[in-house]
Design a protein around this nucleic acid. Structure first.
Lengths: 201, 201
DNA sequence: CAGGACGTTGGCAGCCACTGCCAGGTTGGC
DNA sequence: GCCAACCTGGCAGTGGCTGCCAACGTCCTG
Protein backbone atom coordinates (compact mmCIF):
# COMPACT_ATOMS: atom_id res chain seq x y z
CA UNK A 1 0.00 0.00 0.00
CA UNK A 2 3.02 2.25 0.32
CA UNK A 3 3.70 2.32 -3.37
CA UNK A 4 1.79 5.50 -3.94
CA UNK A 5 4.29 7.48 -1.89
CA UNK A 6 7.27 7.61 -4.20
CA UNK A 7 5.59 9.80 -6.75
CA UNK A 8 7.25 13.02 -5.65
CA UNK A 9 10.61 12.64 -4.05
CA UNK A 10 11.80 9.28 -5.30
CA UNK A 11 14.07 9.72 -2.33
CA UNK A 12 13.45 6.35 -0.75
CA UNK A 13 12.53 3.54 -3.13
CA UNK A 14 13.21 1.50 0.01
CA UNK A 15 13.94 -1.84 -1.57
CA UNK A 16 10.47 -2.88 -0.60
CA UNK A 17 8.97 -0.72 -3.26
CA UNK A 18 11.53 -2.04 -5.69
CA UNK A 19 10.64 -5.61 -4.81
CA UNK A 20 6.98 -4.83 -5.15
CA UNK A 21 7.45 -3.30 -8.54
CA UNK A 22 9.49 -6.27 -9.65
CA UNK A 23 6.93 -8.77 -8.47
CA UNK A 24 4.10 -6.85 -10.06
CA UNK A 25 5.95 -6.72 -13.34
CA UNK A 26 6.69 -10.43 -13.22
CA UNK A 27 3.08 -11.30 -12.50
CA UNK A 28 1.78 -9.03 -15.22
CA UNK A 29 4.13 -10.42 -17.81
CA UNK A 30 3.37 -14.01 -16.92
CA UNK A 31 -0.34 -13.37 -17.04
CA UNK A 32 -0.23 -11.64 -20.40
CA UNK A 33 1.90 -14.41 -21.84
CA UNK A 34 -0.45 -17.13 -20.66
CA UNK A 35 -3.53 -15.22 -21.74
CA UNK A 36 -2.30 -14.80 -25.28
CA UNK A 37 -0.98 -18.34 -25.40
CA UNK A 38 -4.01 -20.26 -24.19
CA UNK A 39 -6.79 -17.73 -23.78
CA UNK A 40 -8.13 -15.80 -20.84
CA UNK A 41 -10.79 -18.18 -19.60
CA UNK A 42 -8.49 -21.16 -19.97
CA UNK A 43 -5.86 -19.60 -17.71
CA UNK A 44 -6.36 -20.01 -13.99
CA UNK A 45 -5.07 -17.77 -11.26
CA UNK A 46 -3.31 -20.78 -9.77
CA UNK A 47 -1.31 -21.26 -12.96
CA UNK A 48 -0.30 -17.62 -13.19
CA UNK A 49 0.76 -17.58 -9.57
CA UNK A 50 2.72 -20.79 -9.94
CA UNK A 51 4.59 -19.67 -13.02
CA UNK A 52 5.22 -16.22 -11.60
CA UNK A 53 6.62 -17.70 -8.42
CA UNK A 54 4.18 -16.17 -5.95
CA UNK A 55 1.25 -17.43 -3.96
CA UNK A 56 -2.32 -16.88 -5.08
CA UNK A 57 -2.84 -14.80 -2.00
CA UNK A 58 -0.05 -12.44 -2.93
CA UNK A 59 -1.24 -12.22 -6.51
CA UNK A 60 -4.63 -11.07 -5.32
CA UNK A 61 -2.96 -8.52 -3.10
CA UNK A 62 -1.26 -6.96 -6.11
CA UNK A 63 -4.18 -7.24 -8.49
CA UNK A 64 -7.52 -7.45 -6.81
CA UNK A 65 -9.16 -9.12 -9.77
CA UNK A 66 -8.26 -11.41 -12.61
CA UNK A 67 -9.49 -8.74 -14.98
CA UNK A 68 -7.06 -6.25 -13.47
CA UNK A 69 -4.26 -8.33 -14.92
CA UNK A 70 -5.26 -6.98 -18.31
CA UNK A 71 -6.11 -3.38 -17.65
CA UNK A 72 -2.65 -2.70 -16.32
CA UNK A 73 -3.79 -0.16 -13.82
CA UNK A 74 -6.71 1.38 -15.62
CA UNK A 75 -6.50 4.17 -13.08
CA UNK A 76 -3.56 5.64 -14.92
CA UNK A 77 -5.57 5.92 -18.11
CA UNK A 78 -8.41 7.67 -16.38
CA UNK A 79 -6.27 10.18 -14.55
CA UNK A 80 -4.26 10.87 -17.66
CA UNK A 81 -7.36 11.55 -19.70
CA UNK A 82 -8.94 13.76 -17.07
CA UNK A 83 -5.68 15.66 -16.70
CA UNK A 84 -5.48 16.16 -20.43
CA UNK A 85 -8.99 17.55 -20.54
CA UNK A 86 -8.27 19.81 -17.61
CA UNK A 87 -5.18 21.18 -19.30
CA UNK A 88 -7.10 22.28 -22.37
CA UNK A 89 -7.74 26.01 -22.58
CA UNK A 90 -11.16 27.01 -21.35
CA UNK A 91 -12.38 28.05 -24.77
CA UNK A 92 -11.66 24.66 -26.30
CA UNK A 93 -14.88 22.82 -27.08
CA UNK A 94 -15.91 19.48 -25.64
CA UNK A 95 -15.27 17.59 -28.86
CA UNK A 96 -11.77 18.90 -29.20
CA UNK A 97 -10.94 18.25 -25.57
CA UNK A 98 -12.14 14.68 -25.83
CA UNK A 99 -10.08 14.13 -28.94
CA UNK A 100 -7.03 15.34 -27.10
CA UNK A 101 -7.77 12.93 -24.28
CA UNK A 102 -8.00 10.01 -26.70
CA UNK A 103 -4.72 11.05 -28.27
CA UNK A 104 -3.06 10.99 -24.88
CA UNK A 105 -4.53 7.61 -24.03
CA UNK A 106 -3.36 6.10 -27.29
CA UNK A 107 0.15 7.42 -26.79
CA UNK A 108 0.49 5.21 -23.73
CA UNK A 109 0.83 2.01 -25.69
CA UNK A 110 4.41 0.91 -26.06
CA UNK A 111 3.93 -0.44 -29.56
CA UNK A 112 1.08 -0.91 -32.05
CA UNK A 113 1.71 -4.63 -32.04
CA UNK A 114 1.22 -4.88 -28.32
CA UNK A 115 -1.86 -2.70 -28.50
CA UNK A 116 -3.29 -4.92 -31.20
CA UNK A 117 -2.68 -8.04 -29.18
CA UNK A 118 -4.20 -6.48 -26.09
CA UNK A 119 -7.27 -5.19 -27.91
CA UNK A 120 -7.80 -8.51 -29.59
CA UNK A 121 -7.71 -10.31 -26.28
CA UNK A 122 -10.18 -7.94 -24.67
CA UNK A 123 -12.64 -7.84 -27.54
CA UNK A 124 -12.63 -11.59 -28.03
CA UNK A 125 -13.33 -12.47 -24.41
CA UNK A 126 -16.84 -11.74 -23.24
CA UNK A 127 -16.02 -11.23 -19.59
CA UNK A 128 -13.09 -8.96 -20.39
CA UNK A 129 -15.06 -6.88 -22.82
CA UNK A 130 -17.80 -6.43 -20.26
CA UNK A 131 -15.26 -5.37 -17.63
CA UNK A 132 -13.65 -2.94 -20.04
CA UNK A 133 -16.99 -1.38 -20.88
CA UNK A 134 -17.77 -0.99 -17.21
CA UNK A 135 -14.55 0.89 -16.58
CA UNK A 136 -15.12 2.93 -19.69
CA UNK A 137 -18.44 4.13 -18.35
CA UNK A 138 -16.76 5.17 -15.14
CA UNK A 139 -14.22 7.11 -17.12
CA UNK A 140 -17.04 8.87 -18.92
CA UNK A 141 -18.63 9.80 -15.66
CA UNK A 142 -15.40 11.31 -14.38
CA UNK A 143 -14.99 13.29 -17.56
CA UNK A 144 -18.54 14.57 -17.53
CA UNK A 145 -18.23 17.43 -15.03
CA UNK A 146 -15.08 18.65 -16.77
CA UNK A 147 -16.93 18.99 -20.04
CA UNK A 148 -20.19 20.46 -18.87
CA UNK A 149 -18.45 23.77 -18.28
CA UNK A 150 -17.05 23.96 -21.78
CA UNK A 151 -18.72 25.87 -24.60
CA UNK A 152 -21.18 23.71 -26.48
CA UNK A 153 -21.03 23.90 -30.25
CA UNK A 154 -24.23 25.84 -30.62
CA UNK A 155 -25.51 26.61 -27.18
CA UNK A 156 -27.33 23.36 -26.63
CA UNK A 157 -28.83 22.99 -23.20
CA UNK A 158 -27.25 21.32 -20.22
CA UNK A 159 -27.49 17.59 -19.72
CA UNK A 160 -26.45 17.14 -23.30
CA UNK A 161 -22.82 16.81 -22.28
CA UNK A 162 -23.52 13.23 -21.27
CA UNK A 163 -24.66 12.39 -24.77
CA UNK A 164 -21.59 14.05 -26.23
CA UNK A 165 -19.15 12.16 -24.01
CA UNK A 166 -20.95 8.89 -24.63
CA UNK A 167 -20.87 9.51 -28.37
CA UNK A 168 -17.17 10.29 -28.37
CA UNK A 169 -16.40 7.07 -26.55
CA UNK A 170 -18.74 5.12 -28.78
CA UNK A 171 -16.99 6.39 -31.88
CA UNK A 172 -13.65 5.65 -30.30
CA UNK A 173 -14.74 2.10 -29.66
CA UNK A 174 -16.07 1.76 -33.17
CA UNK A 175 -12.75 3.00 -34.50
CA UNK A 176 -10.89 0.52 -32.33
CA UNK A 177 -12.97 -2.40 -33.54
CA UNK A 178 -12.60 -1.34 -37.15
CA UNK A 179 -8.86 -1.03 -36.63
CA UNK A 180 -8.85 -4.47 -35.04
CA UNK A 181 -10.67 -6.04 -37.94
CA UNK A 182 -8.15 -4.49 -40.30
CA UNK A 183 -5.38 -6.19 -38.30
CA UNK A 184 -3.97 -2.94 -37.10
CA UNK A 185 -3.68 -1.21 -40.42
CA UNK A 186 -4.29 2.51 -40.47
CA UNK A 187 -4.59 4.97 -37.62
CA UNK A 188 -7.17 4.67 -34.89
CA UNK A 189 -7.45 8.40 -34.51
CA UNK A 190 -8.07 8.84 -38.21
CA UNK A 191 -10.80 6.20 -38.04
CA UNK A 192 -12.24 8.03 -35.06
CA UNK A 193 -12.37 11.26 -37.03
CA UNK A 194 -14.04 9.54 -39.93
CA UNK A 195 -16.65 7.89 -37.73
CA UNK A 196 -17.43 11.07 -35.87
CA UNK A 197 -17.68 12.97 -39.14
CA UNK A 198 -20.18 10.41 -40.42
CA UNK A 199 -22.22 10.71 -37.25
CA UNK A 200 -22.28 14.47 -37.26
CA UNK A 201 -23.42 14.46 -40.86
CA UNK B 1 -35.25 -27.10 -24.43
CA UNK B 2 -38.72 -27.83 -25.81
CA UNK B 3 -40.12 -24.45 -24.91
CA UNK B 4 -39.30 -22.89 -28.23
CA UNK B 5 -41.77 -25.13 -30.06
CA UNK B 6 -45.08 -23.67 -29.02
CA UNK B 7 -44.59 -20.42 -30.86
CA UNK B 8 -46.87 -21.29 -33.74
CA UNK B 9 -49.67 -23.68 -33.02
CA UNK B 10 -50.04 -23.44 -29.27
CA UNK B 11 -51.64 -26.80 -29.89
CA UNK B 12 -49.82 -28.72 -27.18
CA UNK B 13 -48.61 -26.73 -24.20
CA UNK B 14 -48.11 -30.24 -22.79
CA UNK B 15 -48.26 -29.41 -19.10
CA UNK B 16 -44.52 -29.70 -19.05
CA UNK B 17 -44.20 -26.46 -20.87
CA UNK B 18 -46.79 -24.95 -18.60
CA UNK B 19 -44.92 -26.16 -15.55
CA UNK B 20 -41.68 -24.80 -16.93
CA UNK B 21 -43.21 -21.42 -17.57
CA UNK B 22 -44.67 -21.35 -14.11
CA UNK B 23 -41.41 -22.25 -12.47
CA UNK B 24 -39.49 -19.71 -14.52
CA UNK B 25 -41.96 -17.03 -13.58
CA UNK B 26 -41.77 -17.94 -9.91
CA UNK B 27 -37.98 -17.86 -9.93
CA UNK B 28 -37.85 -14.56 -11.78
CA UNK B 29 -40.32 -12.91 -9.45
CA UNK B 30 -38.55 -14.14 -6.35
CA UNK B 31 -35.20 -12.99 -7.65
CA UNK B 32 -36.43 -9.52 -8.58
CA UNK B 33 -38.07 -9.14 -5.20
CA UNK B 34 -34.95 -10.10 -3.32
CA UNK B 35 -32.71 -7.99 -5.52
CA UNK B 36 -34.72 -4.85 -4.93
CA UNK B 37 -35.15 -5.63 -1.26
CA UNK B 38 -31.57 -6.33 -0.27
CA UNK B 39 -29.45 -5.63 -3.32
CA UNK B 40 -28.02 -7.79 -6.06
CA UNK B 41 -24.67 -8.70 -4.54
CA UNK B 42 -26.21 -9.39 -1.16
CA UNK B 43 -28.61 -11.93 -2.61
CA UNK B 44 -27.27 -15.45 -3.10
CA UNK B 45 -28.45 -18.02 -5.56
CA UNK B 46 -29.08 -20.35 -2.67
CA UNK B 47 -31.52 -17.89 -1.14
CA UNK B 48 -33.41 -17.35 -4.38
CA UNK B 49 -33.66 -21.08 -4.98
CA UNK B 50 -34.82 -21.73 -1.44
CA UNK B 51 -37.53 -19.06 -1.50
CA UNK B 52 -38.63 -20.03 -5.00
CA UNK B 53 -38.95 -23.66 -3.95
CA UNK B 54 -36.49 -25.15 -6.41
CA UNK B 55 -32.99 -26.51 -6.18
CA UNK B 56 -29.97 -24.47 -7.18
CA UNK B 57 -29.31 -26.94 -9.93
CA UNK B 58 -32.74 -26.38 -11.45
CA UNK B 59 -32.42 -22.65 -11.14
CA UNK B 60 -29.22 -22.73 -13.15
CA UNK B 61 -30.95 -24.85 -15.73
CA UNK B 62 -33.55 -22.18 -16.27
CA UNK B 63 -31.22 -19.21 -16.07
CA UNK B 64 -27.67 -20.04 -16.86
CA UNK B 65 -26.32 -17.06 -14.98
CA UNK B 66 -27.23 -14.92 -12.02
CA UNK B 67 -27.19 -11.93 -14.32
CA UNK B 68 -29.78 -13.58 -16.54
CA UNK B 69 -32.24 -13.24 -13.68
CA UNK B 70 -32.33 -9.53 -14.46
CA UNK B 71 -32.31 -9.38 -18.21
CA UNK B 72 -35.48 -11.38 -18.43
CA UNK B 73 -34.48 -13.08 -21.63
CA UNK B 74 -32.49 -10.36 -23.32
CA UNK B 75 -32.88 -12.41 -26.48
CA UNK B 76 -36.39 -11.15 -26.90
CA UNK B 77 -35.21 -7.56 -26.91
CA UNK B 78 -32.59 -8.24 -29.53
CA UNK B 79 -34.86 -10.13 -31.88
CA UNK B 80 -37.57 -7.52 -31.50
CA UNK B 81 -35.18 -4.72 -32.33
CA UNK B 82 -33.70 -6.51 -35.32
CA UNK B 83 -37.18 -7.35 -36.57
CA UNK B 84 -38.24 -3.75 -36.22
CA UNK B 85 -35.25 -2.57 -38.23
CA UNK B 86 -35.91 -5.19 -40.86
CA UNK B 87 -39.51 -4.10 -41.18
CA UNK B 88 -38.57 -0.53 -42.00
CA UNK B 89 -38.93 0.41 -45.67
CA UNK B 90 -35.68 0.23 -47.58
CA UNK B 91 -35.47 3.95 -48.10
CA UNK B 92 -35.61 4.71 -44.39
CA UNK B 93 -32.26 5.94 -43.10
CA UNK B 94 -30.19 4.28 -40.41
CA UNK B 95 -30.98 6.91 -37.78
CA UNK B 96 -34.69 6.61 -38.29
CA UNK B 97 -34.58 2.81 -38.26
CA UNK B 98 -32.63 2.81 -35.02
CA UNK B 99 -35.06 5.19 -33.42
CA UNK B 100 -37.89 2.89 -34.37
CA UNK B 101 -36.04 -0.02 -32.79
CA UNK B 102 -35.62 1.90 -29.53
CA UNK B 103 -39.29 2.78 -29.56
CA UNK B 104 -40.17 -0.88 -29.85
CA UNK B 105 -37.78 -1.87 -27.10
CA UNK B 106 -39.19 0.73 -24.74
CA UNK B 107 -42.74 -0.40 -25.42
CA UNK B 108 -41.92 -3.77 -23.87
CA UNK B 109 -41.84 -2.48 -20.32
CA UNK B 110 -45.03 -3.18 -18.48
CA UNK B 111 -44.95 0.08 -16.56
CA UNK B 112 -42.63 3.07 -16.15
CA UNK B 113 -42.33 2.30 -12.46
CA UNK B 114 -41.05 -1.18 -13.11
CA UNK B 115 -38.69 0.11 -15.78
CA UNK B 116 -37.35 2.69 -13.36
CA UNK B 117 -36.77 0.11 -10.67
CA UNK B 118 -35.08 -2.25 -13.11
CA UNK B 119 -32.85 0.46 -14.57
CA UNK B 120 -31.86 1.68 -11.15
CA UNK B 121 -30.85 -1.80 -10.10
CA UNK B 122 -28.76 -2.36 -13.20
CA UNK B 123 -27.03 0.99 -13.18
CA UNK B 124 -26.23 0.88 -9.49
CA UNK B 125 -24.61 -2.56 -9.54
CA UNK B 126 -21.21 -2.70 -11.20
CA UNK B 127 -21.39 -6.32 -12.28
CA UNK B 128 -24.87 -5.91 -13.68
CA UNK B 129 -24.01 -2.78 -15.56
CA UNK B 130 -21.01 -4.48 -17.10
CA UNK B 131 -23.13 -7.45 -18.14
CA UNK B 132 -25.73 -5.16 -19.62
CA UNK B 133 -23.13 -3.30 -21.62
CA UNK B 134 -21.75 -6.55 -22.94
CA UNK B 135 -25.13 -7.65 -24.21
CA UNK B 136 -25.71 -4.21 -25.63
CA UNK B 137 -22.58 -4.50 -27.73
CA UNK B 138 -23.78 -7.82 -29.06
CA UNK B 139 -27.07 -6.24 -29.99
CA UNK B 140 -25.18 -3.54 -31.85
CA UNK B 141 -23.24 -6.14 -33.76
CA UNK B 142 -26.42 -7.92 -34.81
CA UNK B 143 -27.93 -4.67 -35.96
CA UNK B 144 -24.86 -3.62 -37.91
CA UNK B 145 -25.37 -5.64 -41.11
CA UNK B 146 -28.99 -4.55 -41.27
CA UNK B 147 -27.98 -0.91 -41.30
CA UNK B 148 -25.01 -1.00 -43.61
CA UNK B 149 -27.35 -1.49 -46.56
CA UNK B 150 -29.41 1.57 -45.73
CA UNK B 151 -28.87 4.97 -47.29
CA UNK B 152 -26.39 7.03 -45.33
CA UNK B 153 -27.30 10.66 -44.69
CA UNK B 154 -24.79 12.05 -47.13
CA UNK B 155 -23.11 9.17 -48.85
CA UNK B 156 -20.48 8.58 -46.18
CA UNK B 157 -18.30 5.57 -46.87
CA UNK B 158 -18.76 2.09 -45.55
CA UNK B 159 -17.51 1.12 -42.14
CA UNK B 160 -19.14 4.23 -40.76
CA UNK B 161 -22.29 2.32 -39.93
CA UNK B 162 -20.55 0.97 -36.86
CA UNK B 163 -19.97 4.46 -35.55
CA UNK B 164 -23.59 5.38 -36.22
CA UNK B 165 -25.00 2.37 -34.38
CA UNK B 166 -22.62 2.88 -31.49
CA UNK B 167 -23.60 6.53 -31.28
CA UNK B 168 -27.29 5.75 -31.30
CA UNK B 169 -26.88 3.31 -28.42
CA UNK B 170 -24.63 5.72 -26.58
CA UNK B 171 -27.22 8.46 -26.79
CA UNK B 172 -29.90 6.02 -25.75
CA UNK B 173 -27.88 5.12 -22.69
CA UNK B 174 -27.23 8.74 -21.91
CA UNK B 175 -30.95 9.40 -22.16
CA UNK B 176 -31.67 6.48 -19.87
CA UNK B 177 -29.24 7.68 -17.22
CA UNK B 178 -30.59 11.22 -17.42
CA UNK B 179 -34.09 9.86 -17.07
CA UNK B 180 -32.97 7.78 -14.13
CA UNK B 181 -31.42 10.77 -12.37
CA UNK B 182 -34.67 12.64 -12.83
CA UNK B 183 -36.49 9.79 -11.08
CA UNK B 184 -38.37 8.79 -14.17
CA UNK B 185 -39.70 12.20 -15.06
CA UNK B 186 -40.03 12.98 -18.73
CA UNK B 187 -39.81 10.74 -21.75
CA UNK B 188 -36.72 8.69 -22.56
CA UNK B 189 -37.30 8.97 -26.27
CA UNK B 190 -37.54 12.74 -26.03
CA UNK B 191 -34.29 12.83 -24.09
CA UNK B 192 -32.76 10.63 -26.75
CA UNK B 193 -33.81 13.03 -29.46
CA UNK B 194 -32.37 15.96 -27.53
CA UNK B 195 -29.09 14.22 -26.95
CA UNK B 196 -28.75 13.13 -30.53
CA UNK B 197 -29.62 16.62 -31.70
CA UNK B 198 -26.88 18.05 -29.50
CA UNK B 199 -24.39 15.55 -30.85
CA UNK B 200 -25.25 16.17 -34.47
CA UNK B 201 -25.00 19.90 -33.96
C1' DC C 1 -53.45 -50.28 -19.11
C1' DA C 2 -48.68 -51.81 -18.81
C1' DG C 3 -44.28 -50.53 -19.92
C1' DG C 4 -40.64 -48.28 -21.99
C1' DA C 5 -38.81 -43.77 -23.96
C1' DC C 6 -38.00 -39.30 -22.79
C1' DG C 7 -37.56 -35.15 -20.18
C1' DT C 8 -37.11 -33.05 -15.61
C1' DT C 9 -35.44 -32.68 -11.04
C1' DG C 10 -32.41 -32.67 -7.02
C1' DG C 11 -28.28 -33.77 -4.76
C1' DC C 12 -23.45 -34.32 -4.68
C1' DA C 13 -18.81 -33.48 -5.75
C1' DG C 14 -15.89 -30.38 -7.75
C1' DC C 15 -13.72 -26.10 -10.11
C1' DC C 16 -12.56 -21.37 -9.93
C1' DA C 17 -12.37 -16.53 -8.45
C1' DC C 18 -11.97 -14.23 -4.30
C1' DT C 19 -11.60 -13.06 0.96
C1' DG C 20 -10.47 -13.13 6.05
C1' DC C 21 -7.44 -14.68 9.22
C1' DC C 22 -3.20 -15.97 11.25
C1' DA C 23 1.61 -17.40 11.66
C1' DG C 24 6.17 -16.48 10.14
C1' DG C 25 9.86 -14.04 7.94
C1' DT C 26 11.98 -9.52 6.25
C1' DT C 27 12.98 -4.70 6.48
C1' DG C 28 13.46 -0.26 8.57
C1' DG C 29 14.17 3.08 12.37
C1' DC C 30 15.96 3.65 16.97
C1' DG D 1 20.10 -5.49 18.85
C1' DC D 2 15.18 -4.67 19.27
C1' DC D 3 10.80 -3.51 18.34
C1' DA D 4 7.48 -2.02 15.04
C1' DA D 5 5.83 -1.99 10.50
C1' DC D 6 5.27 -4.53 6.53
C1' DC D 7 4.92 -8.29 3.42
C1' DT D 8 4.20 -13.16 2.37
C1' DG D 9 2.18 -17.80 2.27
C1' DG D 10 -1.11 -21.05 3.65
C1' DC D 11 -5.59 -22.45 4.98
C1' DA D 12 -10.29 -22.49 5.43
C1' DG D 13 -14.45 -20.73 3.65
C1' DT D 14 -18.00 -18.36 0.41
C1' DG D 15 -20.39 -17.90 -3.83
C1' DG D 16 -21.22 -18.66 -8.76
C1' DC D 17 -21.34 -22.39 -11.83
C1' DT D 18 -20.88 -27.31 -14.01
C1' DG D 19 -20.85 -32.46 -14.73
C1' DC D 20 -22.67 -36.50 -13.34
C1' DC D 21 -26.06 -39.67 -11.70
C1' DA D 22 -30.09 -41.58 -9.65
C1' DA D 23 -35.06 -40.85 -8.95
C1' DC D 24 -39.32 -39.41 -10.61
C1' DG D 25 -43.10 -37.62 -13.55
C1' DT D 26 -44.99 -37.33 -18.21
C1' DC D 27 -45.97 -38.88 -22.67
C1' DC D 28 -46.50 -42.35 -26.27
C1' DT D 29 -47.04 -46.87 -27.92
C1' DG D 30 -48.65 -51.46 -28.06
Amino acid sequence: MAQGEQGKGASTPTLWDRTRQLAAHEILETALRLFTQQGYDETTIAQIAREAGVSQRTLFRYFGTKEDLIGGSQERFVTLMTDTVREQPADVGAWEALRAAFTTALSLHTSPEQALERFRLVHHTDSLRAAYLGKRVRCQEELLPLLEARPAPSGTGRGQARAIVATAFACFDAATVTWLEADGQGDILALYDQGLAAVRS
